[in-house]
Amino acid sequence: MDADITLTVDGERRALTVDTRVTLLDALRDRLGVTSPKKGCDHGQCGTCTVLLDGRRATTCLAFAVAHDGAEITTSAGLGAGDGGVGAEPAHPLHRAFLEHDGFQCGYCTPGQICSAAGMLAEAEAGWPSAVTPDVAERPALDEAEIRERMSGNLCRCGAYPGIVAAILGVAEGRRT
């Protein structure tokens, strides 16, 4: 079954016709040529397909594109665009921090890590607790343990976690000061 849908991707409105079976990830990569989100496990376990979906981090491999008609999607490539436009690098403080702190090796998981980190920082700023917050009724303080817990949905097979945590902590501290 085909469906006509519209997606706004990194600020650009795109209309397309998709089979209902097409995931958001495949629609982005194979239909729209947006290859910033990557396909890793394709089962919601690795986080490398993470984007900001209507402003919140979400895996795109477990979402049918047809169910997100009208959605606004920001990929890592589109994060911070506006200064230099999509592809102008390094556009966002998280991009710069990942470079500074060696937050990647092969880079395959990086766009998902960046989008997840962006969404996670917004969640923490909104006061959302996590599984390691000592008292869920209190406003959490974002430290290394909190970052590790909140980023546990993003795997890095190169094991760049120390750099990833340092990069995100750096951006979080920069925002606080």
Binding site: R57, A58, T59, G119, E123, A131, V136, G153
Partner: peptide, 10 residues
Amino acid sequence: LSGASGQLRN
């Protein structure tokens, strides 16, 4: 908060 990941809980 002990279930799934941040992306999935959203």
